[in-house]
Design a protein around this nucleic acid. Structure first.
Lengths: 229, 229
DNA sequence: GTCTATAGCTTGATAGAC
DNA sequence: GTCTATCAAGCTATAGAC
């Protein structure tokens, strides 16, 4: 199988780059709303206004296109998170940053991106929510795309909570991950449940509550009375 | 469109009942692992060892079959939860039960079912996790199947935390819901992240930590210093 | 209730012309 | 890089025989 040649000077824009972007954007939006199997390659290319065959030329199989969609913004998120973590570490030095500050460094980059006008990021997080909850490849995919950076956050959290049993830190992160991905998926369920008092899309209401809720959870699992092995 | 006649004395088992059960079980397992669009009716009937046409006869369309799968165990969960809620309310009377007791009443029925040998329940919770995270119909479906009972829990929680702003209770429940559905989906991500120290399938480790984490989150959002409107 | 047979489409993927 | 044309396979849904 021959892959598209990106070739040429780095950063240079060959003719096909605009096509690749249009395909990625259309695929992101459609996958986010209907899932991998709920979308056909033909729908994607129709939405992108390019020819069907170009998916195969630029990305390979449908599955490889899906992976490209996931990868594109994962790299941005990971870099943002590392920058934020280094920021709060520098501010707190020589002490370790607080739990709340670390959680803030982990979540704030997402909050920023979603609050921007770019609807691509909303689609992306809706997609990540589905991947994270997928029994069959959720574990594998999230580990691959995000966990290298998550590991660095776990180290920081252990320093902030030196007496916390490591397994309780992992479980705490796991709960945060569930709350986080569901929140950014904007499913509208909380709108229904609360009869409109709360709204999935109201990230200004969501964000401080999520940070506080999760920080309290971490701390509760790090107290001496918390469940041990 | 003609629906299958269940007819006859209630509780009586007509010939087709075994077929219906085989279809429901196979559909539950396949939908849980591959999602609605990732499964074909033919795969379901092959797994169930029944004829293709019988799905149409007993359930109608593929989507109606999916709804039947969701409905079957939702009714059991809802009844279990109500019984548990009434139980803790009775024990605490005339006081309101504690937050932790109410959360326990909400989660324990799931824990019991998953800890049983029946793999059907594991499949079911993996399926619910996917539905809950679905941007397009997660909100609608969860509201329909589970929120009538969730509302009764919200009332009990408000009584346990009378000074808590209602919107903070809704957000807290929302975070719990994300943690809960992800946990019961058993994606194996925490296994990878923790290098085997924690396991998705270890519900005895998961359960007490989830209750404590979420109870602490609820309480943190009900303190005077918590985010307000 | 169950099964055979089939209508009418759509799918992912790609070979080959330009 | 892009597009036309096509393939073999699979799909949902159902009419009608038993």
């Amino acid at each position: 199988m021959v892959k598209a040649q990106q070739s040429g000077r780095s950063g240079g824009s060959r003719k096909g780059d605009a096509t690749k972007l249009k395909i990625l954007d259309a695929a992101e939006s459609l996958f986010a709303h209907k899932g991998f199997d709920g979308v056909t390659v033909r729908q994607i290319t129709r939405e992108a206004e390019v020819d069907v065959a170009l998916v195969n030329y630029h990305f390979g199989t449908k599955r490889e296109l899906f992976d490209s969609v996931l990868m594109r913004r994962a790299e941005v998120v990971n870099q943002d998170r590392l920058d934020a973590l280094h920021g709060v570490s520098r501010e707190a030095a020589p002490d370790a940053p607080t739990v709340e500050a670390i959680i803030h460094a982990f979540l704030e980059p997402l909050h920023q991106r979603v609050a921007s006008a770019d609807s691509g990021w909303k689609d992306y997080f809706a997609l990540v929510a589905q991947v994270n909850s997928s029994h069959d490849w959720g574990g594998e995919a999230m580990t691959r795309y995000f966990d290298p950076v998550v590991r660095q956050f776990m180290v920081a959290l252990q320093q902030a909570l030196p007496d916390c049993p490591p397994e309780n830190l992992y479980w705490s992160y796991h709960f945060l991950s569930g709350a986080l991905t569901l929140s950014f998926a904007e499913t509208g369920r909380i709108d229904n449940l609360s009869a409109g008092m709360c709204q999935s899309t109201d990230h200004d209401a969501l964000y401080p509550r999520m940070v506080r809720y999760c920080a309290a959870g971490f701390q509760a699992l790090c107290e001496p009375a918390a469940p041990q092995n």
